Simulated assay, not measured.
Amino acid sequence: MGLSVSNGNLSGWNIETNISLLHHTLMNKQAPLTLILGSTGKIGSRVAVELRKLGLPIRTAARSNADVAFDWSRRHCFAHALEGVGRVFLVAPTLRLDFADDVAAFLDEAEAGGVQHVTFLSAYGMEHAPNEVATRSVELDLRQRKVLGHTVLRPAWFMQNFTETFLKPVDGAILVPTGDGTEAFIDAQDIAAVAAITLADPLAHVGEAYSLTGPEALSVADAAAIMSEETGQAIAHVNLDREAWIAGAIEHGMPFEYGAVLRQLTETIASGHGSRPNGTVQKITGTPPRTFRNFAHQNASAWRVSK
């Protein structure tokens, strides 16, 4: 969900990828400008870092703290954000289910302005979603555009959900109705590494849709056990009643209509249909995706409670 092991260094990539992208950067000093939407978010901020390391020109876009102000509810800002842009990292609006028309308008503007390629951050399994689901609608919209090249990224649940959002422990407990189901959690850095490669060399990835996973399928209880070992403190998974959990999320500010998304996401894992490890990240980056153990070791301080 938007609800990894690249370390962000070129030395971590395989020789072929390293040489190819360095050649791309050195031989094309006038590389097209890449617009990064959601540039202050978990993935967009990391994509910006990766592209800067490659020496590629970028323009960050977000509601604040970015090169350009960008708000999906203000279509008049699209043209300014896209001025002079050749490639786009597309992140749809968060906590909304009605964004397909806004994204379509943005893509119309992108085509008219000469954008050549869009890398779209979708979600794992989205190819099986009904066409009316907004994220799937964007995928289909991109597919039918004849001028605009695209790559779709479909990542599993982010490991960062355990440190930043709804899987973060509260009083030593991770409250989420996923039962004993497993998920191949992926580090946001690995997603960003793949995204950067598709944006640096889009012709090699045009028309592709990549399902991105971590290297192992874990239940939330498995993850909690690893977190306990790394922190030296007890962390447990509490499998709350799903409807009560959704009601609590809405009570704490989650839009009511987003409850359907939370229900589907957690039911998918609880029913045993969560993501399964594949070799896509390593195939594209040349580096194995980050393990949850490594992630937990580096982030133990985020969960450790002072006594």
Rank of each mutant, 00 (worst) to 15 (best):
G8T: 04
G8D: 05
N9Y: 08
N9H: 08
L10K: 06
L10M: 11
N14R: 11
N14S: 09
N18G: 06
S20M: 13
M27A: 12
I36F: 03
G38C: 03
G41C: 01
K53G: 06
S64P: 01
S64T: 15
N65R: 15
H76C: 11
L82E: 10
G86P: 08
R87H: 15
F89T: 06
L90K: 01
V91S: 11
L97N: 14
F99W: 03
V118L: 00
V118C: 02
V118A: 02
M126K: 07
H128K: 13
V133E: 15
R136C: 08
R145N: 12
H150T: 10
H150I: 06
P155L: 11
E164Q: 11
F166A: 07
V170M: 08
G172Y: 00
V176T: 14
G179H: 10
T182E: 14
A184I: 01
A188H: 01
A188V: 13
D190T: 05
L199M: 09
L203H: 14
G207M: 01
E230M: 15
I235V: 06
H237L: 04
H237R: 09
N239F: 09
L240R: 14
L240S: 12
G248L: 05
G248E: 13
A249C: 12
I250A: 10
Y258W: 04
V261S: 12
T266F: 01
S271Q: 12
H273G: 04
I284W: 09
T287A: 05
F292H: 02
N294E: 15
W303A: 00
R304I: 01
V305M: 01
